[in-house]
């Protein structure tokens, strides 16, 4: 495999992707929603932080020596941003995968490429590398916007430790979107009509990203009463644990349903890294990674499986359009 040819194909993929108007539109929607989500959370956070600082000042002035630590978690403000990557980011990656195949078919560049000494493996590697560069640029841009919102509007900058956690969360986002890119390529390459492939890929997206997590979420009894079932019953965390001990079988089934979705694995990992879940706050990075090893493993599994399918698709993809033009 020639690295020069792979890089040339990757550069072509990168440049071609940014020329697509629909992709740019979807990216603009993602950027705008991420900005609104983090902006509003940061505005709220600024008020709460000011309240806490005022309390600390007053307590210190009164000679109080044991001041409780801030209950605020800066990175948790990125929850909405992570959810948008989970839903919109996956659609963007799908569209990118679809365009990778349909563009070459429509432009008739595949026969040209095949007339050169380019192997299907190099083509797959080049396209995947280019797509990962596009996705990394996209994720990095949203990360910069999000961190700037935290610092400038929330008036609190992430520490170096939080920076590493954030980096890992966004790295997982690139892997997650890469899985959907591969799905878009595979579904389109295997369809005689590219639009049919896009519809199949969107159907899988609907099932994996929205329906399966939604089923798991609504089977959670606590979510079925406004404000939470256990709160309505007047039970604290210990009471909830004691009651749920009688429902271990049910909870296992619910968990299996959720684990069938790659989105849920990304969500759980990203939420742990961004302190969205209370129970992970205060964990060291090593503890977090150990705790989330199952989700890391599943993400790696999906990435490997779809990556292999992508490579095989490039070996099978016909160089000329077949069975119609749309």
């Amino acid at each position: 495999m020639s690295s020069g040819r792979v890089l040339a194909l990757a550069r072509h993929e990168y440049r071609a992707a940014w020329r697509s108007r629909i992709l740019l539109t979807l990216v603009a929607i993602l950027a705008a929603t991420t900005f609104v989500s983090v902006l509003t959370a940061a505005l709220d956070y600024r008020g709460q932080l000011a309240d806490y600082q005022a309390y600390v000042q007053a307590a210190t002035a009164d000679g109080v020596t044991r001041i409780p630590p801030s209950p605020l978690a800066l990175l948790s403000l990125l929850r909405g941003a992570m959810e948008y990557v989970e839903i919109l980011g996956a659609v963007i990656a799908l569209a990118l995968g679809y365009l990778t195949i349909s563009r070459e078919r429509a432009n008739g560049t595949l026969p040209l490429l095949r007339s050169r000494p380019v192997t299907p493996g190099e083509q797959a590697a080049g396209s995947a590398l280019g797509a990962l560069a596009v996705l990394s640029t996209l994720v990095a841009s949203t990360a910069v916007v999000a961190v700037l919102c935290l610092g400038v509007i929330g008036r609190d900058w992430p520490s170096s430790g939080q920076g590493v956690q954030l980096l890992l969360a966004y790295l997982a986002a690139v892997v997650y979107m890469g899985v959907f890119y591969a799905l878009g390529v595979v579904a389109t390459a295997r369809s005689r009509v590219a639009t049919t492939g896009l519809m199949v890929a969107l159907g899988v997206w609907l099932l994996v990203v929205l329906i399966i997590p939604q089923i798991g979420d609504t089977l959670d009894a606590d979510n079925q009463v406004p404000g939470g079932l256990f709160a309505a019953l007047g039970l604290d965390r210990n009471g909830e644990t004691a009651v749920l001990a009688h429902f271990s079988g049910y909870e296992h089934v619910r968990n299996w349903i959720e684990e069938a979705s790659v989105s849920k694995h990304f969500e759980r990992f990203a939420f742990a890294m961004t302190d969205v879940k209370d129970k992970y706050r205060g964990f060291t990075l090593g503890q977090l990674l150990t705790e989330k090893r199952n989700d890391i493993g599943w993400l790696a599994f999906y990435a490997t499986a779809l990556g292999t399918a992508l490579w095989r698709s490039f070996r099978r993809v016909p160089p000329t359009p077949q069975g119609g033009t749309a």
Binding site: G80, E86, I87, P213, Q214, D217, T218, P226
Partner: peptide, 12 residues
């Protein structure tokens, strides 16, 4: 409303 809140019929 966060996106996942839109997926639950009971949202805060």
């Amino acid at each position: 409303l966060r996106p996942t809140a839109s997926l639950n019929p009971v949202s805060d």
